[in-house]
Design a protein around this nucleic acid. Structure first.
Lengths: 339, 339
DNA sequence: TTGAAAGCGCTAACAA
DNA sequence: TTGTTAGCGCTTTCAA
């Protein structure tokens, strides 16, 4: 059978091809009778307008590129699902671009592909965009929203939570509950989130007049986080009484290592605080105290921002930072009460 | 600046527009000199061929639709990531369609959208396709591969693991290690996987001459699985000594409930076996004995099958079933040795 | 409100 | 090998 075109419908309905087009075009002028006739014929042929052909004229593909580094951290599939639902409401769909590889050359290829597909916009989650890449997208007139990452480039819009403040809050909580030997297994130092959370940790400690017990880069990676934990606990001069970890995904690894390799108890021997509050964090097996990223608001703002960029290019870039909230669960304890 | 077209490049290079087209078309005949000239001009303008315009002629969009119900079960983001990488190799990208809603009407809408985007093929993961929907896709000439689901419809190709055999193996293992009161929290009975795994469980038990302790539908849902667990352990006449659970995702819920609500130990009080072997299952916190789905082979076969369907429509449908393997970890024990 | 006609950016005959 | 030309299926002027 193959494709049914508007011309087929037109012939069947005995009207012009443009009449068919109009009935399927939002806000075009067609009489009720015409619309009825056309829709009837269209239904009988199971006709649907070809978005690709439409895109050629309108210049809009109704495709949004989601560039994402990895999906093993539950935060991202969760975001993907929510973004997809929200975009669907607006008549857009997500084309997935995996960009785990960190070489500039690989990144260039991803941008090539983005341009090829004539995407209407880009949501870059958990990936850094070099200046040159950002400029290419600008030249091609493809708006970009950074999701859960910020960039020095002031022309890039982004939505994040306030990572500095969130980390500071978490650290202050640990201090207020009597922890004094605080270690930080940080997010990847090449990312804004990694750096900002580390800075928040350092700031809280400094204000308190305390030195960090240790800071190790866990690179947002499970294996690296386990290595970091081992390193932390191999020190001879006592153990940390609390670890602030750069995200929940690493936290699970750290907790597994502490419990099943070190044989220590959480929070009795060491308290743990994470960042993100992914669904898994609330499961009893981990029951993690963590800084909740306001993911729904982040999604909402990302989409609102992107739609603005798509529909009126005049919008000036904004770096939105939403407030996160500390969710206290079972991996922390009040050491002041202990004795 | 906006879009750069092949005509712009042609003018800049002082050649015809078709010459530009040819240099960017696989297997077209262009001289080395021409190609060089064109590429130079193209690079200077940062030109990329418009896939959408190309699609209009070739009839191929290089877009594959992934229809997926949910992403909270780690099996699916994992599959999505792997599918995306494998398809990228072949020059395809994944457009995401979320189809959690189970009403026929919603499903029709999803198919509408699929057709709109002129996708070259569909991978339906974790979703059922009614006959009428499958027929619509057939009419539109869009090939479908079912991933991790089978359907009665013999015209639909699918790739699954052998769920019946996998479940049977798991159950036989429990029997061989001295368990006698076996319960099953099953996958959703409206799905092929749910039914086949339940059948494998029942078959092994019957061959052994044993009645199931209980069978409850957990619907592949965390909350439902927890409810099922509560129900199971509220019975007055003793407790099960083993539970075979329809997938790992539910397993985590069941284990959480057993440990933190019932206060029982795994495997000392009750053994647990899951299905899938998602990454999380090997983490020490769960360390789950489970039937591993050969996901890499499943991905490979799915893509191979889909490419076949796309490139030669003559391919007859195949229901591929790959062998799964029981991975014994820490949630099972040998009760024969216990005393 | 409707139809005729032009053209979106590209590929693929067809000639040269 | 190259250029010319005719569409792919649609939207959007422009007249009627």
């Amino acid at each position: 059978m193959g494709k049914v075109t508007s011309l087929d419908v037109a012939r069947k309905a005995g009207v012009s091809q443009s009449a068919v087009s109009r009935t399927f075009t939002e806000g075009a002028s067609v009489s009720v009778g015409m619309a009825k006739k056309v829709r009837k014929a269209a239904d009988e042929l199971d006709y649907r307008p070809n978005i690709l052909a439409r895109s050629l004229i309108t210049g809009r593909s109704r495709i949004i590129a989601l560039v994402v580094g990895y999906l093993d951290n539950q935060f991202y599939p969760d975001a993907l699902e929510k973004l997809s639902r929200a975009l669907k409401e607006k008549g857009y769909h997500i084309l997935v671009f995996l960009a785990s590889n960190e070489s500039e050359q690989e990144a260039q290829k991803v941008v090539d592909e983005l341009i090829d597909y004539q995407v209407d916009g880009i949501i870059a989650a958990s990936v850094s965009l070099s200046h040159s890449l950002a400029k290419r997208c600008k030249t091609q007139n493809i708006p970009i929203m950074l999701f859960n990452r910020r960039q020095d480039n002031p022309s890039l819009s982004s939505v994040t939570s306030n990572n500095f403040l969130g980390a500071k809050k978490a650290t202050e909580y640990l201090l207020a509950t009597g922890h004094r030997k605080l270690a930080h297994i940080s997010g990847w130092s090449e990312t804004s989130t990694g750096r900002e959370r580390a800075a928040g940790f350092a700031c809280a400690l400094e204000k308190f007049g305390l030195e960090p017990y240790d800071i190790i880069d866990g690179m947002y990676n499970r294996e690296k986080a386990i290595e970091a934990t081992r390193k932390l606990f191999s020190k001879k001069n006592g153990l940390p009484d609390a670890i602030f970890v750069g995200n929940d995904h690493m936290c699970f690894a750290v907790m597994d290592s502490i419990r099943y390799e070190m044989g220590l108890r959480i929070p009795e021997d060491v308290s743990i605080v994470g960042f993100d509050d992914v669904p898994l964090s609330s499961w009893p097996a981990y029951n993690l105290t963590t800084v909740r990223q306001p993911i729904n608001k982040m999604i909402q703002s990302t989409i609102k921002g992107l739609m603005n960029l798509i529909h009126n290019d005049l919008t000036e870039p904004k770096q939105l930072q939403l407030e996160g909230k500390l969710i206290v669960r079972g991996t922390t304890t009040n050491r002041l009460k202990e004795k």
